[in-house]
Computed example of a mutant assay.
Amino acid sequence: MTTKPIGGDRIWRGIVLLAVYGLPLFFILLPLCGFLVYSLFWVEGTELHHDLTLMNYRRFFGDEIYVPVLRQTVILCLEVAAICIGFGYPVAYFLSGLKGRKKYALLMLLLVPLLMSYIIKMYAIRSILGGNGFLNRALIALGIIDQPLTFFVFNLNAVLLTLSVLLLPFAILPIFLSLERIPKNLLEASADLGGSNRQTFFRVILPLSLPGVVSAASFVFVLAIGDFLTPQLVGGQNGFTFGRIIYSQFGTAFNWPFGAALSVILAALVMVAIVTGAWFGGGKAAVRR
């Protein structure tokens, strides 16, 4: 009979605890604290002052530009989340109803775009929606329009459509997993009690899949609100978002403390969205059950 050394168990347990708590602390919490401290510095000309001040936060709330842009960006990202849920739920529901390997083969096909380069996907969308893109050429060839449409290029509509297309797989997967967890005996019990397909969906399937819907919505919202590359490439001058403001502060404006303050504000908003999604998707659903 052999026994493991007690010291070896303690070392292994210490390594596991370091990986579980140390890595998130080092790679997530410390950078966020660094941003918070840096946001309290200030810049005058090209000189960085390390005196702690709330000047950057007062500038954010006092200027008439930043708060409206943040509000507009939040609305845009909520619309992206709604579109992804609206298109993602039927797809996830269809996939969950399939049987055998076909279900997971189609799911993998839907997730293949996630493996592609983000920039390549955006340029592909631009080639479709641009003034000389496939959509405009097709509509002109069919005689529907006389000149290229600019409704879906270099404005917030282009950002909305592009983000919705790019983030749609992130909405499908949580909803699909939520639908897969619904016990089949509940559906059989509903049918045995005389419930129609419509009644079963609205009274059994939809309520039980709401945690997945909320998780998908919060996931898409968080990814959309932190994106600055999509508005940069497809938004143009009329597609300005909060992420582009942060990007400009770290780039052309070279005002890193103010960019850090804007990043802290955005991070706080993201945390609120995550906690709200977890409460509605997890805790509140558990209370209902």
Results as ranks from 00 to 15, higher is better:
residue 218 S to P: 09
residue 187 L to H: 09
residue 75 I to Q: 12
residue 11 I to Q: 13
residue 178 S to A: 15
residue 192 D to S: 12
residue 175 I to S: 07
residue 267 A to S: 12
residue 66 Y to N: 10
residue 134 F to H: 06
residue 169 P to W: 00
residue 183 P to L: 09
residue 1 M to R: 10
residue 91 V to D: 06
residue 41 F to P: 01
residue 14 G to C: 03
residue 206 L to R: 14
residue 39 S to I: 01
residue 38 Y to R: 05
residue 268 A to N: 00
residue 141 A to C: 06
residue 155 N to G: 08
residue 32 L to F: 14
residue 156 L to P: 08
residue 244 R to M: 15
residue 162 T to C: 09
residue 234 V to W: 00
residue 268 A to L: 13
residue 193 L to W: 10
residue 256 W to P: 04
residue 223 L to R: 10
residue 269 L to A: 05
residue 123 Y to S: 12
residue 87 F to D: 08
residue 199 Q to H: 12
residue 212 G to N: 02
residue 193 L to R: 14
residue 262 L to M: 10
residue 36 L to P: 01
residue 35 F to G: 02
residue 216 A to Y: 02
residue 282 G to H: 07
residue 34 G to S: 04
residue 60 F to W: 04
residue 113 P to R: 02
residue 145 I to L: 04
residue 273 A to L: 07
residue 264 V to P: 00
residue 38 Y to H: 02
residue 144 I to E: 03
residue 14 G to M: 02
residue 261 A to L: 01
residue 132 N to H: 03
residue 7 G to T: 04
residue 49 H to W: 05
residue 191 A to M: 12
residue 14 G to Y: 02
residue 86 G to V: 03
residue 93 Y to A: 15
residue 215 S to P: 04
residue 239 G to N: 07
residue 176 F to W: 08
residue 187 L to V: 10
residue 204 V to G: 06
residue 177 L to C: 08
residue 179 L to E: 09
residue 105 A to M: 09
residue 279 W to L: 12
residue 20 V to N: 07
residue 267 A to G: 11
residue 225 I to H: 04
residue 269 L to Q: 01
residue 123 Y to K: 04
residue 199 Q to K: 15
residue 282 G to I: 05
residue 113 P to G: 05
residue 280 F to A: 11
residue 117 S to L: 06
residue 91 V to C: 13
residue 52 L to E: 08
residue 186 L to D: 07
residue 185 N to D: 15
residue 116 M to G: 12
residue 138 A to N: 05
residue 151 F to M: 05
residue 65 I to Q: 13
residue 216 A to I: 01
residue 188 E to G: 12
residue 183 P to V: 06
residue 143 G to Y: 00
residue 100 G to Q: 05
residue 7 G to Q: 10
residue 278 A to V: 06
residue 74 V to M: 14
residue 245 I to Q: 11
residue 242 F to T: 08
residue 199 Q to F: 08
residue 69 V to P: 13
residue 112 V to M: 10
residue 148 P to H: 00
residue 107 L to K: 07
residue 201 F to Y: 14
residue 170 F to M: 15
residue 267 A to L: 07
residue 163 L to I: 04
residue 130 G to T: 00
residue 103 K to I: 14
residue 191 A to Q: 12
residue 226 G to T: 02
residue 274 I to G: 10
residue 261 A to H: 01
residue 171 A to H: 07
residue 214 V to C: 09
residue 18 L to K: 11
residue 167 L to H: 01
residue 1 M to N: 12
residue 268 A to W: 01
residue 168 L to M: 09
residue 289 R to W: 06
residue 99 K to L: 05
residue 142 L to S: 13
residue 177 L to S: 11
residue 16 V to P: 13
residue 43 V to F: 00
residue 113 P to N: 06
residue 155 N to I: 02
residue 108 M to F: 15
residue 269 L to I: 03
residue 138 A to V: 03
residue 6 I to Y: 08
residue 70 L to A: 11
residue 109 L to S: 13
residue 196 S to C: 07
residue 48 L to W: 01
residue 133 G to L: 01
residue 189 A to L: 06
residue 74 V to A: 14
residue 284 K to F: 14
residue 231 P to V: 00
residue 6 I to C: 05
residue 20 V to G: 10
residue 67 V to Y: 02
residue 51 D to R: 03
residue 245 I to W: 03
residue 27 F to V: 11
residue 68 P to F: 01
residue 109 L to Q: 11
